Computed example of a mutant assay.
Amino acid sequence: MTVHFHEEDLAADVVFDGPVAVDTETMGLITHRDRLCVVQISDGKGDEHLVRFGPDSTYDAPNLKAVLGDPDRLKLYHFARFDLAAIEHYMGVMAGPVFCTKIASKLVRTYTDRHGLKNLIDELLNENISKQQQSSDWGGPVLSDAQREYAASDVRYLHRLREELVRRLEREGRMEMAQACFDFLPTRARLDLAGWPDRDIFSHE
Rank of each mutant, 00 (worst) to 15 (best):
D47I: 00
H4K: 03
R188K: 03
D60E: 09
L50H: 06
V142L: 13
M1H: 11
D113W: 07
A104P: 14
L165S: 04
L107H: 15
S42E: 01
D23I: 01
I30M: 00
E149K: 12
D70N: 13
K106H: 14
D192G: 00
L143E: 03
V51M: 00
W196S: 01
E170P: 04
H115Q: 12
L84D: 04
S203M: 05
V15D: 01
F16L: 02
H32W: 01
T112S: 15
L107P: 15
L125W: 12
Y150I: 05
G173M: 05
A66K: 14
G96A: 07
L125K: 11
D183F: 04
R188F: 12
F5K: 05
R199D: 05
P97W: 10
L125E: 11
Y59S: 03
Y111P: 08
W138M: 12
C37A: 10
P197M: 04
V20S: 08
K65Q: 10
E176F: 07
G173D: 06
L165M: 08
Q179H: 03
E205G: 00
L185V: 15
H204E: 12
A85P: 06
P141K: 07
Y77I: 09
C100K: 12
A180Y: 13
S203W: 07
V38S: 01
G116Q: 02
A85S: 06
L117W: 14
Y77Q: 09
V142G: 10
